[in-house]
Design a protein around this nucleic acid. Structure first.
Length: 257
DNA sequence: GTACAAGTCGCAAACAGGCG
DNA sequence: CGCCTGTTTGCGACTTGTAC
């Protein structure tokens, strides 16, 4: 079974949507995919990108999973990989991954052309000790995790209407929405419309929160990347930090505190 | 293995305060 | 004053621990 598989379609693969502020530093490998290593402990692997270049990337085992770590930033830089790019990793059964990169338009990325463009114009980043920036062309809203929304997260009404989840008359249009976290995990989340016309994310949100170990005080950015799907960005430990700010995108009206 | 108790979770609804 | 939203609370369902 160790025989290398030749056809990419027959190879084990996993997909990864790049979100979060640290994808350029390390990238998690889905825990469910590790079984394809057949018990091997890979310390290093080779990533072959669309450019044809190979990068020897070290894998790091952490408490929260296995990560592409050392030299991964080089691969990111060399392929002009940006936030919201969609990567498919085809595993050859040994220690090599062929990586296909799609940009946010869902088209395969032209790495050479990407290199001629200026740097990302939609970026989530942190700066040490500085304000958190979140910038996106997509609709998004930010909530700080409080004790009362451990199990039910409110969604701003105007955004819920704009995204077609409910009508302006207060009628629920979609009963569920997909939350995708920074490791690519997805949680189907129930939407509950309260009698006073507000939209809450209930079951599924809790699953996502636990899976990502979101703590009280963490800021969570919910970004609508497409109809029916939300990317969850976690800005840890910034809930009490008044320096959090939003540069662009759709936002609920400023919350009162 | 089963039954019961206690704790936790999730849904639903209501209260309270700010703003136009 | 009405609307909107943050926050709190009640209660049933579910899960887990423990005694028998």
């Amino acid at each position: 079974m160790d025989e290398k598989l030749k056809c990419p379609l027959e190879r084990p693969s996993f997909r990864m949507l790049l979100v979060g502020d640290d994808f350029s530093q390390h990238l998690p490998i889905p825990p469910a995919f590790i079984k394809n290593f057949n018990g091997r402990r890979l310390g290093k692997c080779t990533l072959r990108g669309p450019s044809g270049k190979c990068w020897a990337v070290e894998l790091e085992q952490r408490r929260d999973g296995l990560f592409f770590h050392k030299d991964w930033p080089g691969f990111v830089k060399d392929h002009f990989i940006e936030l919201e790019d969609f990567l498919i990793f085809y595993y050859d059964g040994g220690s090599e991954f062929n990586v296909t990169i799609y940009d946010k338009t869902c088209c395969e990325k032209d790495v050479k052309a990407a290199g001629k463009r200026p740097a990302s114009d939609h970026l989530a980043e942190t700066s040490t000790g500085g304000p958190i920036l979140f910038k996106s062309e997509n609709t998004f809203f930010i909530q700080t995790l409080k004790s009362y929304n451990l199990y039910a997260m409110l969604m701003p009404k105007d955004i819920a209407i704009a995204e077609g989840l409910m009508s302006s008359e207060g009628i629920l249009i979609k009963e569920t929405i997909m939350l995708q976290d920074q490791t690519g995990r997805s949680c189907l989340t129930n939407l509950y419309l309260t009698p006073d016309g507000r939209l809450m994310m209930t079951e599924g949100w809790t699953t996502c929160r636990k899976a990502n170990q979101i703590s009280l005080g963490d800021d969570i950015v919910f970004e609508f990347v497409k109809k029916g799907a939300i990317l969850v960005h976690i800005l840890r430990g910034k809930g009490n930090n008044s320096s959090s700010m939003v540069l662009s995108g759709s936002q609920p009206r400023k919350s009162k505190t």
